[in-house]
Simulated assay, not measured.
Amino acid sequence: MHSVLRVQTAASPHDLDDAQRELRDPLCIPDDRAAVMLRGAPWRRVVVLGDSIAEGLGDRVPGYRDRSWAERLVAALESAVGPIASLNLGRRGRRAGEILAYQVPPAVAFAPDLVVVTAGANDILQRSFSLSAVTDEIDRILDRVTSGGALAVTFGLFDLSKVADVPDHVGTRLGRRIAEVNGATQRLAARYDAVHVDFERHPALDRSLFSSDLIHPNRRGHAYIASDVMRALSQRAAQRR
C-alpha cells in the first residue's frame, strides 16, 4: 500500500496552541515566510521515497506541531503555488536496494517533477554494510527517478554517533559509515544536478533533536528538516527563474 500525503494547509487553533516554541524558533521557517520563499516554484507533483525518515516517524514535542517534514513541505508548496499532487512511499526499515526495487517503480509511474530520496541509513546499521553496494543502489535510484526530468532532493544523514548510547569503538565505526554514505550521496547528487541537503553537522544536533529511541528525529527535528529543505528548494527555484 502506498500513501498520499495528507496535509493541513491551514493551521487549526489547536495547532497554533501547540506551536508556540516553533513560532519563536529561529531555525524554523514560519508558514507565511515559507509561502513567500517558494512562490513561483515549478513543482506540482511530489514523491517522497525512502525509509522511516521519509515515512515521517518521530515523537511529539511540546510547542511544535505534530507534522512530519514531508507534510510540512507539501503544505508549504500548496500555500505558495496551489494544489500539489503528492505521494509518500517511505517505509521504516527499508534499505537502499529495497527502495530501488519496490518504491522506484511506483514513484516513476506517478510522473513526479520533484522527488525526495532518503536512503542509506538502514544499510549503515547492517553487519554486511558495503559502501560500494549502497552507492550503486542510490546511483540507480537517482538515475531512474530523474529520467523523466524530475528534480531530485537527497539528504545527508544526521550523525547519530554524536547522540547514540554505544561504546566508543561502535560510535567511531557508525560515524565513519555515516560520513562515507553522506559523501557518496553528495557526489551522486552533483552528478544528477540534484539538491543535496546536508544534516550531518546540523547546528542543533544533540539528543534533544531525537525521539526516545535516539534514532528518529522528533517533531522538532522534522521542523528543522522541512525548513532546511525549503531553503534549498527556494534557492533552486530562484536559479530557474
Results as ranks from 00 to 15, higher is better:
residue 160 L to Y: 04
residue 193 D to N: 14
residue 238 A to N: 11
residue 206 D to G: 11
residue 230 M to S: 02
residue 66 D to T: 11
residue 95 R to A: 09
residue 20 Q to M: 11
residue 5 L to D: 04
residue 194 A to T: 09
residue 134 V to A: 11
residue 150 A to K: 07
residue 9 T to H: 01
residue 76 A to T: 06
residue 46 V to K: 00
residue 199 F to H: 13
residue 83 P to I: 01
residue 147 S to R: 14
residue 84 I to Q: 08
residue 120 G to Q: 01
residue 216 H to Q: 06
residue 172 T to D: 11
residue 230 M to R: 05
residue 38 L to T: 08
residue 183 G to M: 04
residue 104 V to S: 10
residue 21 R to Y: 01
residue 17 D to P: 00
residue 192 Y to K: 06
residue 6 R to Q: 12
residue 135 T to W: 09
residue 127 R to L: 11
residue 125 L to G: 00
residue 141 I to W: 05
residue 186 Q to F: 00
residue 95 R to S: 07
residue 118 T to R: 00
residue 142 L to E: 02
residue 28 C to D: 03
residue 5 L to A: 14
residue 129 F to H: 02
residue 205 L to F: 09
residue 240 R to N: 01
residue 119 A to P: 01
residue 159 D to H: 05
residue 57 L to V: 11
residue 194 A to F: 09
residue 172 T to H: 05
residue 91 R to A: 07
residue 50 G to Y: 02
residue 80 A to C: 12
residue 6 R to N: 07
residue 71 E to P: 02
residue 84 I to C: 01
residue 81 V to D: 12
residue 97 G to A: 13
residue 184 A to R: 08
residue 222 H to M: 00
residue 74 V to T: 10
residue 160 L to R: 15
residue 106 P to D: 11
residue 167 P to I: 03
residue 191 R to C: 12
residue 17 D to E: 14
residue 9 T to N: 13
residue 138 I to N: 09
residue 123 D to E: 02
residue 117 V to K: 08
residue 139 D to A: 14
residue 209 L to M: 14
residue 108 V to K: 12
residue 22 E to N: 10
residue 148 G to W: 03
residue 171 G to D: 07
residue 33 R to W: 00
residue 123 D to A: 04
residue 185 T to K: 04
residue 29 I to G: 06
residue 108 V to Q: 11
residue 2 H to D: 13
residue 195 V to F: 06
residue 162 K to W: 02
residue 171 G to I: 03
residue 108 V to F: 10
residue 85 A to C: 01
residue 34 A to W: 01
residue 18 D to S: 13
residue 154 T to M: 06
residue 78 E to H: 05
residue 64 Y to N: 08
residue 116 V to T: 10
residue 111 A to W: 00
residue 164 A to D: 01
residue 181 V to W: 03
residue 70 A to E: 09
residue 103 Q to Y: 13
residue 202 H to F: 12
residue 142 L to Y: 02
residue 98 E to D: 14
residue 147 S to D: 12
residue 72 R to P: 02
residue 201 R to V: 05
residue 134 V to E: 11
residue 114 L to I: 07
residue 196 H to F: 07
residue 67 R to A: 10
residue 71 E to R: 13
residue 25 D to Y: 11
